[in-house]
Amino acid sequence: MLHIVNKSPFEKDSFTSCMAHAAESSTVLLIEDGVYAALKGSSVEDQLSRAKVVALQSDVAARGIEGNLVDGIDLIDYPDFVDLVANGDGVQSWV
């Protein structure tokens, strides 16, 4: 399943709740303010290993944090986003 998180983990519990409920086989896509969850050295960094986490490149770039992300986070574009939705077996937004 594809999980989409669009909230900063420092403001709302969406990311933490998502990581606590996502199956290990799932992919978590960070968009909008959700991309802040991928910051290196943050208080939620250790949660990133619980599933495959990717982030939307355009939202990362808009916020100027591309150089601050943890290693190994794949940055994807909108066509990749569409592929994740189409190729996965379901999608859930943690609004």
Partner: peptide, 18 residues
């Protein structure tokens, strides 16, 4: 930003032939 994200997603999906 939700409407912007949705717009970009829809546009990309259409361009991919969905």
């Amino acid at each position: 930003q939700a409407s912007d994200s949705a717009y970009n997603f829809v546009k990309a999906a259409l361009e991919k032939g969905h």
